[in-house]
Design a protein around this nucleic acid. Structure first.
Lengths: 212, 212, 212, 212
DNA sequence: AATGAATGAGTCTTCATTCAT
DNA sequence: CATGAATGAAGACTCATTCAT
């Protein structure tokens, strides 16, 4: 089916970009990984650039959708912020390779991607900043804090992805970031937060008694 | 002088990488910007890759030197951490273009750079983690927190560098990150911290009475 | 019907070749213009080359047929030559797009087309040369003159086709060429020749009193 | 020397275009013929297109220069026209391969070349038309006649170039065209014209007694 | 030390042609 | 007959790197 091919190519692109970087990856390498001929790539993407753009869009569609869905469940502003962060971390965790490619390679690949990435980032940052505003933070700090959160999550993701042997503990790391950010913003402690959503097989690494 | 040439080439490389990205920049563009012939580049760098490597090294030499110098002035662990962050922000602010190139382009350019970048990052992260350990944070959280801080500072830097019209407020943004991180880690409030080192012309944007 | 499809493809090919040139035109563009799928093209032509070959053949079949028919009406050699030229111009005028494609694109496209084109040209040139021989011109000049006539008519055609706004006056231009060639060959003036076959809507542009 | 390389590439391009056509010729084939590497081509021409453009310009620079020089020697209008034609034929004869490439391949290669070619053609046609005007021909016929002459000379050139075995008699053929055109325009016979400039080794093929 | 012309491997992309449906 | 997705060879062009001067 048409969508299967496109999907296979996108997955292959993620796989190859992750290993060779965007610039280092040739279209030939992608199609070989996808199991089709070079020309086939161009039946699904106008250019190599458009392929990466599609990946960027894909990641943020998923993040935005998850965040929107999570927020819809809550009424209180701080609750919305709290679940938003969780939703974002969850998507990063589930789509870790896609996320690593987009967050690591796209910014340096070309101003084009930077701009595209920034559009969605601004959307997310605006959401977070809005929440923080309602929580009483001044405008400029809000923006900084929102960007800080994005950078922190991205870095933690890329860091964990680089760990050898599939021992990545993205989810746990995401929880740490969330907690630290939360407290840093002076928001009210959330009792039992950490136990609420253990996701890593080993269970939540943060003990109940942790000052965290 | 030999060092002048090398320096001119490094500056030219920063200038060109910042605008075209690492992969998008040709050696020819760099030498033209530096005012010398293409071949001359190879008298000072074995390859284009080595040029970026030199920039990575340069940034971290400066960061590490500044951090070390700042720490030497303090005795208390929390004080060391506090001034370390300030020192890092100061270097990022002073070498903003260099920092933007290294933090934005290097990770996506090749595994080679990722590795090199990671070596120094680990050094810094270890320092921060050590401080946090003495401040009572558990080992795993410490690492996460350290990475988070690095990611946050990098993101805020790149974000501000992208702002049009030279209105970048790197220093202010760095302060916000520092404060938020500090509180997030549950470290004791530092009275009057923000007023201690106003660097942006407009003065510190965070008013004395800010909850921050 | 089968012939309809083939005809539609040939018309589409003319349309596309005229705008993009033979090499610049893709089979896909032709089939899109013809309203069918890419593969369908190959049910009617073994290759893209054969399609242009078919157009070359088509033009010269028509020219040769018209010339033959016109000549059959006359008995005197000079009369045969005179009406031959008129017949050729008429076909070029009626099939101006086809003629423009064949005369403009085919020679440069490949030795293959040059050869094919040349075969028919030789046929026509031989006819003309024969007439000129009976009119007393030496063998070598006859050949030159015949080629000259072909080149002149082709050039005038392409020139007029390039004129903007559909103001092409192919027929008139053809008449001028015919007259000039006729006199150039030292053939006896043909009284009232120009009035005999006004074809352009505006009527013959050459007034009766013209030295021409 | 720099100009040598460029010249070698242009000559190689003529050689290859003549045999394979413009589109059929690869840059690799040109550089191999010129004895240098593929990339070298791009040190001298921004693109393959620019190479053909340079050839077009070169041909017409030479034609225009020769025509201008010839005209400068004459005062009477008909003399100017007469020597103009001779000059053009001489250049076509001397630069026969260049001329064949430009006249045969350029028109079909792309609208770009058509336009470029047409600019110079208009210049030449205007000159001829002007002369014919002073000789009493009506405006519209003048233009037709000028184009006709261009087409005739071009066709005769390409025709002769296609002859096998280097037996091309371009100069002779050009003389025939000139004579026929001259008489066709009703211009006064030029006594002994043909004997004035025998150029082909075999001597002028047109006997003194020829009606021509 | 400096130059910059030359190299040629490698890239993205196009497109004539095929063939399973 | 018709389709149009798939193919893969080929081509224009780039650019890091070298080296004779």
């Amino acid at each position: 089916m048409v969508e299967d091919r496109r999907e296979a190519l996108l997955q292959a692109a993620i796989w190859v970009f992750l290993r060779q970087g965007y610039q280092g990856a040739s279209v030939k390498a992608i199609t070989e990984q996808a199991g089709c001929a070079t020309g086939t790539f161009y039946l699904y993407f106008p250019s190599k650039d458009d392929c990466l753009s599609a990946l960027i869009d894909r990641l943020y569609e998923r993040v935005l959708a998850a965040v929107a869905a999570a927020r819809a469940q809550e009424t209180a502003v701080t609750d919305k912020l709290w679940v938003s962060m969780e939703a974002a971390v969850r998507v990063f965790d589930e789509e870790r390779q896609l996320a690593a490619v987009v967050l690591r390679d796209a910014p340096g690949a070309s101003p084009l991607f930077r701009e595209r990435l920034d559009r969605v980032r601004r959307t997310l940052a605006a959401l977070i900043a809005e929440d923080l505003g309602e929580a009483g933070m001044a405008p400029w700090e809000r923006e900084c804090a929102a960007r800080m959160l994005e950078g922190a999550l991205g870095e933690v993701l890329v860091w964990q992805m680089a760990e050898e042997g599939g021992t990545a503990r993205l989810w746990d790391a995401g929880q740490v970031v969330r907690r630290l950010f939360w407290r840093g913003c002076g928001l009210p402690a959330r009792a039992g937060a950490s136990e609420a959503s253990p996701r890593s097989p080993e269970g939540n690494v943060l003990g109940r008694d942790s000052a965290w």
